[in-house]
């Protein structure tokens, strides 16, 4: 059996890549993908620990998370498409019409 540390290590790596993507990338779509990476890092932890503790609950949580992520994708992509139609760009840095 693969030791739990490997799973945790991979998950933390995915999480850090996701955070870095959100903070550094300027394209809204890439930021969005990084957000999904964070959710999947959490999913990996849930599944790994569910196997480790032999608890089925952890596996079930992943289904919840996947459903929620799908709902988020639906709303997020709709927004991004709408903004792209209006501005022909989804660069987060150009979103600064409000100041103060």
């Amino acid at each position: 059996m693969i030791p739990i540390d490997y799973f945790v290590g991979l998950s933390v790596l995915m999480f850090v890549v996701g955070i870095a993507g959100v903070l550094l990338r300027r394209n809204a779509l890439v930021v969005f993908m990084s957000l999904e990476l964070i959710l999947n890092a959490a999913n990996l932890l849930f599944v790994a620990f569910a196997a480790y503790y032999e608890l089925l609950a952890g596996q079930l949580f992943v289904f919840f998370v996947m459903t929620v992520a799908a709902a988020e994708v639906a709303v997020g992509l709709a927004l991004i498409v709408e903004i792209f139609r209006a501005k022909k760009s989804i660069d987060v840095d150009q979103m600064s019409s409000m100041k103060g």
């Binding site: 945790v8 964070i38 959490a42 932890l45 620990f49």
Partner: peptide, 13 residues
């Protein structure tokens, strides 16, 4: 929400 979820996963772990 991603941060909250990862926090939940860590606490579960």
């Amino acid at each position: 929400s991603g941060l909250v979820l990862y926090g939940v996963a860590l606490i579960f772990g």
